[in-house]
Design a protein around this nucleic acid. Sequence first.
RNA 1: GCCAGCGUAGCUCAGCAGGUAGAGCGGCUGAUUUGUAAUCAGCGGGUCAGGGGUUCGAAUCCCUUCGCUGGCUCCA
Length: 586
Amino acid sequence: MSEVNDIPIDVLRHSAAHLLAHAVLDLYPETRTGIGPAVETGFYYDFLRQTPFTPDDLEKIEKRMKEIARENTPIERLVLTKDEAVRMFEEKKQDLKVELIREKGDATVTVYRQGPFADFCLGPHVASTGLLQNVKLLSVSGAYWKGDERGPQMQRIYGAVFATKKELEDHFRMLEEARKRDHRRLGAELDLFSTSDDLGGGLILWHPKGARVRAVIEDHWRERHWAGGYDILFTPHIGRATLWQTSGHLGFYKDSMYSPMDIDDQPYYLKPMNCPFHIQIYKSRMRSYRDLPLRWAELGTVYRYERSGTLHGLLRVRGFTQDDAHIICTPGQIESEILRVLDFSVSILADFGFIDNKIELSVRDPKNLGKYCGTDDLWCRAEASLVKALETRGYPYERMEGEAVFYGPKIDIKIKDALGRHWQCTTIQFDFNMSERFGMTYVGEDGQEHRPYMVHRALLGSLERFFGVLVEHYNGSFPLWLAPVQAVVLPIAERHEEYARALDRRLGENGLRSSVDLSREKVGKKIREAEIQKIPLILVVGDKEVERGTAALRVHGQGDKGEVDLARFIEQAKEFHRQKSLIVNF
RNA sequence: GCCAGCGUAGCUCAGCAGGUAGAGCGGCUGAUUUGUAAUCAGCGGGUCAGGGGUUCGAAUCCCUUCGCUGGCUCCA
């Protein structure tokens, strides 16, 4: 048993994918196999087959997988010449494998074989199928051969595998936990937001409590931006087609834009991005190098067409508010500006409790340099500034070659939620396209016109997505400073209501968001309600408290804290609120 | 958009070899005046997502539209 624990999880997963394909071919020999890698949460295998797999089929397949695992079939590694391998899979009528071998195979290729099943694969794999006992299939979905939508639609089966039964069970408990803290579920339970079929998909309705949190986030955002050297802008939601023509959006972004509306015989488009508007402001007058850098931020609401199947709660919507900013600077300023925006981003994410971030640097595809706009010099300088900023701070990052957008390199920060899942929020990207197309210039020391660098940046990303991630990260239990309702006062009996109301008022006068529960329920019920609503501070008042001018404090997640002096409690609560503390300790 | 699954009261779900709809919670009303996670009782509430078909009869079977979910592709 000790040896199974020593196997790297990716090897286990990849071997489980082979086990899956083995079982599928046993049961449905006409199936053609695609690829079957290990992924972050388990493994999958793609199959090409006339009839799609049903949930019943999955059960049968899983059963067969377990049988093969019990048979403990040895897994052997074969080294074949490319021709031998091609012949082998031609005999098996696995033309997709043949295609892969022809594309990817060197002079010799490796094939892993277990019983009748063989797969073209680099490996490594476990020694025998007996090590794959703790396996479970999760779901089946569509996928395209080589990810190409025009290619054949395949059936992808997902599964999970672990070294021990306990780990498998823990994994499913974790999935259940994730389901419980799904922002869509919590959004309804905590009355934060909703969507409506009558309204249309991907459009968010912010309820009073959700809007409250959003307003707190926005206020904090504005405060930090003004303090951080940014100016804040407002721009409209629509603009003339000519603007989008100039920006190039009608060329390269039209598929994501909604149909134009007609205003005085002129076509206008709903904005999918804010940049052209900021550029109009830039171009409203001459700019000198003395004016730069400009840091212009806006909470800009944009509308983008997203295909129906991609919509997902708050994380993928059709109308959203970006916390957008454009930094316009001279070439000499880019290094310091990039470092500054990186520090600023990391610092604001930390304000919200996100400190464990994953950073990706997306650069050009060296094999396809033609598809990018902007000169080589621009790119090199921009890339160097991004790398330098990351290295100056010593942040580990992943270099993603070919992941850059056509108009410039970028840094993405993916924040990690409490369950270890990553969500892309921050993006810092150079834009060589807009500055060129709009002919942005500034007058340099030499009196000549120069092209400024423009950096596009979304920090929280979109307020919708960020809020969704925040809800999941905190499991709905917002820290005091963000909580829609920070304190609730619970009178025990009717005779305590006046005192409770007065206390509620006093909290409000002290800048705390408070409410009072005047329902004719027992205090146990009121506490339960307040706990379910995840209200950080609960103040119970009865005869004793009225008499002494106190309250009994209960802190969400911490339980009963006993009687507190009101003046002292309010001062402490105000301080936690003012400090934007992520934890409170009375 | 594509593949698969799903759509029954505000929410969570039961009902399905086809005979005309049920529970819990929430809501409302009343009683209870309550001390740290659910007081009791009563009452409302559903063209079973919409449309079409098969049938004497459809929540249940078939077709279709819409929506949602899990993925694919894309992305803040």
